[in-house]
Design a protein around this nucleic acid. Sequence first.
DNA 1: AACTGTGAAGCCATTCACAGCT
DNA 2: AGCTGTGAATGGCTTCACAGTT
Lengths: 240, 240
Amino acid sequence: MSGEAIPGGRRHARHHAKPPAPIAQPRRASISPLTVKRLSLYLRCLEQLAEDGRATVSSQQLADALGLTAAQVRKDLGYFGQFGRRGVGYHVDDLVRRLRGIFGTDEVWNVAVVGVGSLGRALLGYKGFLKKGFRLAAAFDSAPGKIGRTFGGVTVRAMAHLPSAVKRQRLRLAILAVPVEAAQEVADAICDAGIKAILNFVPATLTVAEDIAVIPVDLAVQLEQLSYLVNAPAGGRRAR
Amino acid sequence: MSGEAIPGGRRHARHHAKPPAPIAQPRRASISPLTVKRLSLYLRCLEQLAEDGRATVSSQQLADALGLTAAQVRKDLGYFGQFGRRGVGYHVDDLVRRLRGIFGTDEVWNVAVVGVGSLGRALLGYKGFLKKGFRLAAAFDSAPGKIGRTFGGVTVRAMAHLPSAVKRQRLRLAILAVPVEAAQEVADAICDAGIKAILNFVPATLTVAEDIAVIPVDLAVQLEQLSYLVNAPAGGRRAR
DNA sequence: AACTGTGAAGCCATTCACAGCT
DNA sequence: AGCTGTGAATGGCTTCACAGTT
């Protein structure tokens, strides 16, 4: 009811490589979500390395830092181009730039926070997003008592203002943090307003159009994963 | 590098079914984390169905509600026992009970919140965890200004009290929400105190003993996944 | 000598398809 | 007839292993 059959479009004419590759954002061809998730971890790690002043890093070092294999690091990066230099490794600053290009976070994305309960407020107060290329730039709620109040420098507006804000502020991402009863209705409004992707903190499965991306973050589910692991007689531990 | 080589034991002499099967928590044999995650979603969905007064549900209906296939639902459940009745489906209340047994959440788990910044406070204020079997029962911080204050009915204590609280309150899970610089140090303290699993909100990879489970929840990473999907010229949308 | 990039192999997860209950 | 439980087939992700580059 959501992970629809993928269009499965034919695409991607493979033009053969160029040695170091010109700019970021090269070929594409439906990359696994697992790969994309690891890409985020590579980026986070590389940003740390850059801050520490490291110039280059090998796939093995990256793998060790994240609990992966060197081959996997190379393969993941290989889907997007040839970013390394044989015998040398990857240039940290360069790879950071390329990864940001892949995510689009070389430019700042404005993000809407919809639902300003305690979680929404906590997110508005977190200053770490900007460094990663995300600015929580607008907040919406339906409670009259919240509208007009300011959290983390952002003034809460009525839901009715969402569509115009989407255009004016070029909002493409929304963080959904409303009560579970309201979730689907609000999600519909968000999509109608022109938002392209939703980070869903609500413990409910949203039904949205095919071209809207949704990533669920259900904290109770995460705790359950943990209690399973602790409860399990045998079996694997999780990484990190 | 984490998902250790599996024992791979031969086991499970197939003793032919017992109609409804005795109690929950039957066989086990290193289940995929992906399966465990879906199990949480089944449970969430079933709890909703139970609230709505539904008596039975088929694998197809469950699959439709979550964007999966009926075969996958049956296979996932099949790892843990024979919970359904052919020709009928699954009894909702029964399956809820069995799934809770698998997660261990038929009893309430006390959880420690370590780091009472805005995110920690928001979590302490969220009342939805208890219904899922988790009680945020203790909070710790190192800032003198926070110690003694109460959030969501929980009084913040100094980190030094963690070890005794672990024993007294039988804390096995901790939510880590401290600043990134302190994360590894605090994680070490948490593990020393006897905590068995960590929900890690800090954007850093923790190094912990093999027998400690860690599940990372990096919100910037999640936003990056979304921006990738929106940025991507072609390719799949995510579910939910 | 060090290290990347990448086909091929291996492994794991999902889907298929159907036997077996109700 | 309806629906589960599960081997077998399929498909996808990861690891291997090595050619290629610095």
